[in-house]
Computed example of a mutant assay.
Amino acid sequence: MSTTTSTPRTGESEKLTINLGYVDLGQIDLLVAEGFYANRSDFIRTAIRSHLATHAEALRQVVARKMLVLGLQHFTAADLERVRAAGEKLQVRVLGLASIASDVTAELAADTIESLTVLGALHASPAVRAALAGRIH
């Protein structure tokens, strides 16, 4: 099971759709046109990071209290086979990206993952998602 904390690169991010009022959108477009930002997405990413930085201490405390893995947690079939061999079950808590490899069968996931809490994104096959549906929070 690997865990990584990093800033996402293109292809390692999730698409988010938001609705903005016309005035807000116009102001963003003006800042882009004046060269303050490369594009709308650049402005929005910068604004979000700035706002998250404002709440960094509160986020750090909640991550510690809830025992969340911050960043990326990836599970392979070999990882989960070791869990099953030890007779254990995982309670996965991730803030970021939880990734279950394509070599993990639905049965193996069901046998080894007791609960799955993901604040961010979950990448797993449709079969694994279906097998864990009642355990995903």
Rank of each mutant, 00 (worst) to 15 (best):
G96V: 09
A85S: 14
R82K: 09
S50R: 02
T17I: 11
R40F: 04
T10F: 03
R60M: 06
F75C: 05
N39A: 13
Q61L: 15
A110W: 00
Q91E: 14
S41F: 03
R45F: 00
G35V: 09
E107Y: 02
R9T: 04
L72T: 14
R84C: 05
H55W: 04
A109I: 13
I48D: 01
G120F: 09
S102Q: 13
V92L: 10
P8I: 04
I100A: 11
A130F: 06
I113N: 00
M1R: 05
S13E: 13
F75R: 04
L97H: 04
A101F: 12
A77I: 02
E12V: 02
T3V: 08
A130N: 11
L68V: 00
S102W: 00
R135S: 13
V92Y: 03
G26E: 12
K15A: 12
A53C: 01
I28R: 00
R45N: 13
A53E: 12
T112M: 08
N19I: 07
Q91P: 02
L52S: 11
F36E: 13
A121C: 06
A124M: 08
G35S: 10
R84H: 08
E34G: 04
R45Y: 01
D79K: 08
E12D: 13
L80F: 04
V104E: 02
S102T: 12
L70P: 05
Q61H: 11
E114I: 00
T10C: 03
A56I: 10
A106N: 05
G21R: 10
T17A: 08
R9G: 06
R135N: 05
P8Q: 03
G96I: 07
T117E: 08
V128L: 08
V62Y: 12
L80I: 12
E88M: 08
A85E: 15
L95H: 07
F36D: 04
S2E: 14
L132Y: 07
A47S: 11
T112Q: 04
L97I: 12
A56R: 15
L70N: 05
A101L: 11
L31H: 06
E88K: 15
D24Y: 03
V62T: 11
A77C: 09
G134S: 08
Q73T: 03
S2P: 02
S6A: 15
E57Q: 11
V32H: 13
H123V: 14
E12F: 01
A38T: 12
V118G: 07
A130T: 11
H55A: 13
P8L: 03
G87L: 03
E81N: 11
L30D: 09
A133P: 00
L132W: 05
R135Q: 07
A33Q: 11
L52A: 13
L116E: 01
H51D: 10
A127I: 05
V94G: 03
S102D: 15
V104L: 07
V63P: 04
A121I: 09
R135E: 06
A78D: 14
R49D: 11
G26L: 07
H55E: 14
M1E: 10
V118I: 15
K66G: 06
D103N: 14
S50I: 00
M67Q: 12
S125V: 05
V104M: 12
